[in-house]
């Protein structure tokens, strides 16, 4: 239990604060139909979650809500114990710096080297060049791209770009890691290594949410929970994600 929950005591009773909490959340784009509806779940600190569901079920939209690229059209989202309903635009960077994101389309900065792409979160957070050099080299080595540090994304293969994107997402040890199909472009061996990286981070307290269709990835991660989206709503046959919050691992 310790290390898994941000805790506070109210009247002698432990109050568990989840990393993310969705209450009756709905999302629609413009005047279209709701792509997500009545999302009501919590992600506990230190949990490892797989987000699955058929194409068009709303996985990417749900991830966008998690990494604050979208605001819900209704309902309430709390992150790290803070209600974001009334959070101003200026407050969002503070939250985003605590979240690592692996985009499905990588979203690397094309004119920056792999090194500079991975270093970006650290530099934005205000780290000096001396503080950036070591961790970035180490992370690039970890994802097998030590010798490609100065290469720019257009010269990297899809798999290499994906590894750079993952390295960028985890470089500053985020409290919440959100990954959209992170192993879609890598071979089985690299997928295992990346999963190991995620589980290692998870072991250090990072909450991990991975959207994937890869059943092998799910089965290789014991203790992980599954959020299944169907038609924009959470379909959770285990009931593990509904209130009260489920516990990871």
């Amino acid at each position: 239990m310790r290390g898994q929950w941000q805790g506070a005591r109210v009247k002698g009773r432990a109050v568990l604060i989840p990393v993310a909490e969705f209450d009756s959340v709905g999302l629609r784009y413009g005047t279209g139909a709701e792509v997500l509806r009545d999302l009501d779940f919590r992600l506990s600190k230190g949990g490892f979650y797989f987000l699955t569901g058929p194409s068009g079920a709303g996985k990417t939209s749900l991830l966008k809500l998690l990494y604050l690229a979208q605001r819900p059209t209704r309902g309430r989202i709390s992150l790290f114990g803070e209600d974001l309903t009334a959070a101003s635009r200026d407050e969002l960077p503070h939250f985003r710096r605590r979240i690592g994101v692996v985009f499905q389309d990588f979203r690397l900065v094309r004119h920056l080297s792999a090194f500079d792409n991975v270093a970006l979160p650290l530099r934005i957070a205000g780290a000096s060049e001396a503080e950036v050099e070591g961790p970035v080299r180490e992370m690039l080595a970890w994802v097998g791209l030590a010798d490609r540090a100065s290469a720019r994304p257009p010269t990297l293969s899809g798999g290499e770009q994906q590894r750079v994107a993952i390295a960028r997402a985890v470089i500053n040890r985020p409290e919440l890691l959100v990954a959209d199909e992170p192993t879609g472009n890598v071979d089985a061996d690299m997928a295992r290594r990346l999963l190991h990286l995620f589980t290692s981070l998870n072991g250090l307290g990072t909450t991990v949410v991975v959207a994937t269709h890869d059943v092998g990835l799910i089965s290789a991660t014991p203790g992980a929970k599954m959020i299944r989206l169907e038609g924009g709503a959470v379909s959770d046959p285990t009931g593990a994600l509904k209130n009260p919050p489920g516990r990871a691992g």
Binding site: Y67, A69, R89, D90, P93, H94, R96, R97, V101, F103, R107, L108, V109, R110, L120, P121, I124, A125, R168
Partner: peptide, 16 residues
């Protein structure tokens, strides 16, 4: 725009 979206996404402020 793409670079700005990435920067915003990983926590850059408007001022940065």
């Amino acid at each position: 725009r793409a670079t700005i979206d990435v920067m915003h996404g990983i926590g850059a402020t408007d001022v940065q």
